[in-house]
Amino acid sequence: MWKETVSVSPPYHFDRVLERLSLDPLHAVDLEKREVKLPLRNEEKQPCIITVQATGTVDHPEFLVSGHGEQKAMLKEVNRIFRWEESLQPVMDHFSKTSLSVLFKEHRGTPIVLDFQLYHCLMKCIIHQQLNLAFAYRLTERFVHTFGEQQDGIWFYPLPETIAKLDYNDLRELQFSMRKSEYVIDTSRMIAAGELNLDEFPLLSDEEIMGKLVKIRGIGPWTVQNVLLFGLGRPNLFPLADIGIQRAIKHHFGLQTKPSKEDMLTLSKEWQPYLSYASMYLWRSIE
């Protein structure tokens, strides 16, 4: 096993990160130890468990990263997931002068953390469509427990090749709707067959990715925006149709009714070019 200490630019509030990760029952989070175990895969797609433990503070963030597998490649993945190479200070400075300044002061240093793999993010977004959060997490948990794999108590999402071989009824038995079963399996078949190459997505623009994904049955703009945000960490996304963001804006600004699309566009002008952070902090305000 290898170990390495990593220091990152402040502010960085890892305890807030762990709180949010702990909402998902599939994540192996220990709030007391201030650590999370990441189910990553190496280049051969073999499972590797990487432990990330906070040893510093918000203003002096430092981490002990340990695990098996190729150290350089695994550290690169951990950096990507936790956005350690991107300073949050410019974001904090920007929002200190906006109508969200109170939220950004309260949640200061909370980064946008990525889902552990892009395929895992896409599957989760499809499963979560039009479901309340509690049932969405339950359904995703059943999906992973049934078709994924477990190592040392840590659950790994299934590979697209595994899901591509399923029959729609395999998911129906887990309480998936017929349509959602088709969306998950058909999309996985496209990925397994090489018709949809997720590896090229980091090199494409938001518009190019939107154009590729919305052509796929069962994937709409809301799903793509969430993939761009939590799969790729794109900085300037604001899902106008997201009910959680609408609720958070209504609560934050003391509105009588939920905001219209026009209201949201007007309010969000001053939050650019960091709309993704506005989205994240608004979600945090009602979680």
Results as ranks from 00 to 15, higher is better:
Gln256Leu: 14
Leu31Trp: 01
Pro259Glu: 13
Gln256Arg: 14
Ile249Met: 11
Phe238His: 05
Val65Tyr: 11
Lys37His: 07
Leu275Gln: 04
Gly254Tyr: 12
Phe156Tyr: 06
Ser22Trp: 01
Leu171Arg: 00
Leu166Gly: 05
Thr51Phe: 03
Glu32Gln: 06
Gln272Gly: 15
Asp199Leu: 14
Phe63Trp: 11
Gln225Gly: 13
Glu287Met: 14
Pro11His: 09
Arg83Asn: 05
Arg16Val: 00
Ser87Lys: 11
Leu203Ile: 08
Lys215Phe: 11
Gly56Thr: 08
Arg172Thr: 14
Glu86Ala: 08
Gly109Val: 09
Thr162Ser: 05
Arg189Asp: 09
Trp271His: 04
Leu31Pro: 12
Leu118Thr: 13
Leu103His: 03
Arg284Lys: 12
Arg20Pro: 02
Phe201Ser: 03
Tyr168Ile: 10
Ala192Thr: 11
Lys261His: 12
Lys72His: 15
Leu275Ser: 01
Ile50His: 03
Gly69Tyr: 10
Asp15Val: 00
Tyr12Trp: 13
Ser260Leu: 11
Phe116Thr: 02
His145Gly: 06
Pro158Gly: 10
Glu86Cys: 05
Phe82Asn: 08
Gln256Met: 13
Met123Trp: 01
Thr98Val: 04
Gln256Asn: 14
His251Trp: 09
Arg217Met: 10
Leu38Gly: 10
Glu70Tyr: 15
Gly56Ser: 10
Phe135Pro: 10
Lys37Val: 04
Val224Lys: 00
Pro160Glu: 02
Arg247Lys: 14
Gly109Asp: 08
Glu161Phe: 15
Tyr274Val: 10
Leu255Gly: 09
Leu198Pro: 01
Leu21Val: 01
Ile126Gly: 00
Trp155Ile: 01
Leu203Val: 04
Val224His: 00
Met210Val: 15
Leu75Ala: 03
Arg284Gly: 03
Cys125Val: 03
Leu213Val: 09
Met178Ile: 08
Leu237Ile: 14
Lys258Ser: 07
Ser96Gln: 12
Gln117Val: 01
